[in-house]
Nucleic acid binder design. Structure first.
Lengths: 205, 205
DNA sequence: GTCTATAGCTCGATAGAC
DNA sequence: GTCTATCGAGCTATAGAC
């Protein structure tokens, strides 16, 4: 370690960091627009404006690119959690988060990964940042879920895990894409409609 | 047309038909197990037990294989509709169909296609059988939806199209896979839980 | 900029049905 | 004997990796 030129080292590290941010942003967008399988690393390199080989200096493979994108999205979700007002009900907090995720999807910034890709799954589950973030996120959501059930604002006969899974699934609900394609509703209307089907169900109240 | 030997012609045609059925069954299973992108035509040929070239005598490409699988699944759905008791409420009919689709998914017999693949989409929309079947299916479901809303059994403030899309989406709900992987619930319990989240929502009643 | 592997796709020989 | 379906073998283009 060269302690006489800390500024230069820091500068290089910053450059590296900035570049990596740009890569991750691009990957998030491409994953949101085309999905994992349709995304090629050539596209990523071209969109970022760097050589393909440079990508491999940052990430050892396509799967790690996707993992980095997911880590970043989870980070964003955790940042969003901090902004959720503390004085609203747990259920409104959950609605806020899920609605935010739907907005991400409408902005093509919600990565869509194949649910049945074993190698990608193992890369994700083997990624410390991803797993830690996912657990932390789930812990916070789980807290709100149990609070909501205790306060009689969420169906207490549904296992909390089922509620959690359902929320994750609705955050990527394909109905959002269906409705967007129909272009009959505004983004706000789409989020409202899908949130209602999620929390109130299809049966009348 | 040889009217003197109808039986023999019919025999060859039957062979062809049987083979095609076997191909489609295999494709449905592989699409349910691995999804479209992960499925290779080599696998299909190997699983059916025929040469790859023979596949192309039946279907001109991978996309057409998937389309044939979807046509068959829609056909099965239409067959199921005919078995739905006529004396139950429209909502119970809808629950019955969605629950049946979830069972398909649990049996790895629900093809999972990428939602964002333009060439596959155009092949599907260009397939007469698929589009006709889909429209017929949607018409029947739409009828039950409007009946259910008229009878106050479905939320009348939700546009019927939103309800229809939601039902299609829940038929492939990833929560089913999540819960199956956890292996904490029986298949019947999984179907019941996800059906409840769909129709009753997460909020208490 | 190159390499390599994979996967979608095709052709010529062959064997069996008619 | 002809004809067609089948199959092994091979082609090509793409995309991940270096």
């Amino acid at each position: 370690m060269n302690t006489t030129t800390p500024a230069r080292v820091s500068f290089k590290a910053q450059m590296h960091q900035v570049r990596e941010e740009a890569i991750v942003q691009t990957v998030i967008r491409l994953l949101g627009e085309k999905g994992y399988d349709a995304m090629t690393v050539d596209e990523v390199a071209a969109a970022v404006g760097i050589a393909k080989a440079s990508l491999y200096k940052h990430f050892p493979g396509k799967e790690q690119l996707a993992a980095a994108a997911m880590v970043h999205v989870i980070k964003r979700a955790q940042d969003f959690l901090l902004l959720v007002p503390a004085d609203i009900s747990p259920v409104d907090k959950l609605k806020s988060v899920v609605g935010w995720a739907m907005s991400l999807q409408l902005a093509d910034e919600m990565p869509s990964l194949p649910s049945r890709n074993s190698t990608l799954r193992s890369v994700l589950t083997g990624n410390r940042d991803y797993m830690n973030g996912l657990v932390a996120l789930s812990d916070q959501l789980g807290e709100w879920i149990t609070e909501g059930q205790a306060q009689g604002l969420l169906n207490p006969t549904l296992p909390p895990l089922v509620v959690l899974y359902t929320l994750y699934a609705r955050a990527c609900d394909p109905v959002v894409s269906f409705l967007r394609q129909g272009s009959q509703y505004s983004n706000a209307q789409i989020v409202d409609l899908v949130l209602r089907t999620c929390f109130e169900g299809l049966a009348p109240r």
